[in-house]
Amino acid sequence: MADRQRHVLLLDLIDDADAIARYEAWHADGALPPAIGRSIRTAGVTAMDIYRAGTRLVMVMDTAEGFDPAAKAAADAADPDVQAWETLMASVQRPIPTAAPGEKWVEAARIFTLAGQP
C-alpha cells in the first residue's frame, strides 16, 4: 500500500534464559504498559510484531503515511514513561554486531519481494 510503510528492525537479547523469559513476559498479550502502547500508536505505528529466534529479535512495524522516526525518537526522549520502559528493556537487550555506536534497533534492508518476481 502506498499510504503505509513496513519497517523490519533487528536487535539481540542477552544470552540468558531468565532475561529472555522476562522480555517475553513483558511483551505478552495485555502486559505492555498502556502508556507505551499509546506512544507507539500516537506516533503513527499501525501494526507491530516482534519475533524471536534464539537471542535475535525481529520487529515488523507498519506505519501510516507521514510517519517520522525522528519525531517519534524526540517524543520518546521527552516521555518519562517511555524512558522508564527503555531503561527496563536495555537491561536485557544488546545491539546486533553490525549496529552503529549508540544504535539500538537496526533497520534491515529488504533484498527480495515476491511482488517483484514473475
Rank of each mutant, 00 (worst) to 15 (best):
71 A>N: 04
6 R>M: 06
23 Y>K: 04
11 L>D: 00
8 V>Q: 05
36 I>A: 05
13 L>E: 12
64 A>C: 07
11 L>Y: 07
70 A>S: 10
30 G>I: 10
26 W>R: 12
106 V>D: 07
101 P>K: 14
13 L>H: 05
75 A>L: 00
105 W>P: 02
56 R>D: 06
16 D>N: 12
12 D>N: 15
88 L>E: 04
54 G>D: 14
4 R>M: 05
44 G>L: 09
42 T>H: 15
14 I>C: 11
102 G>A: 00
109 A>M: 09
79 D>V: 03
95 P>W: 05
58 V>T: 15
100 A>Q: 15
2 A>S: 08
60 V>R: 11
94 R>M: 01
102 G>L: 06
10 L>Y: 04
57 L>N: 03
52 R>Q: 10
60 V>C: 12
107 E>Y: 05
61 M>S: 12
4 R>A: 04
57 L>V: 10
98 T>L: 12
59 M>V: 11
68 D>G: 13
49 D>K: 12
32 L>K: 00
66 G>F: 06
93 Q>C: 13
24 E>M: 14
56 R>Y: 11
13 L>G: 00
78 A>H: 02
60 V>I: 15
4 R>W: 01
5 Q>P: 01
71 A>L: 13
14 I>N: 05
34 P>G: 09
105 W>D: 09
31 A>Q: 11
99 A>P: 09
15 D>I: 05
22 R>C: 01
102 G>K: 02
74 A>W: 04
56 R>L: 15
109 A>K: 15
108 A>V: 09
101 P>N: 14
76 D>E: 03
93 Q>D: 07
41 R>G: 15
93 Q>I: 04
50 I>C: 10
43 A>Q: 10
87 T>K: 03
65 E>M: 13
88 L>K: 09
63 T>C: 01
25 A>R: 10
52 R>E: 06
51 Y>E: 12
86 E>C: 02
8 V>Y: 06
44 G>P: 11
8 V>C: 14
46 T>Q: 00
5 Q>V: 14
44 G>T: 04
40 I>M: 07
91 S>N: 01
47 A>I: 00
46 T>S: 12
6 R>T: 15
60 V>G: 06
41 R>N: 15
70 A>P: 02
26 W>Y: 14
74 A>V: 06
50 I>Q: 04
100 A>D: 10
65 E>F: 14
55 T>K: 13
5 Q>T: 09
101 P>F: 08
90 A>I: 01
43 A>H: 01
69 P>R: 08
55 T>F: 10
38 R>F: 07
106 V>W: 06
38 R>P: 04
100 A>Y: 12
85 W>S: 06
78 A>N: 06
8 V>N: 00
59 M>E: 12
31 A>T: 05
77 A>P: 05
2 A>H: 02
69 P>N: 01
28 A>G: 07
34 P>A: 08
51 Y>V: 07
94 R>S: 01
99 A>M: 06
109 A>I: 11
34 P>M: 09
11 L>W: 06
51 Y>D: 14
90 A>Y: 00
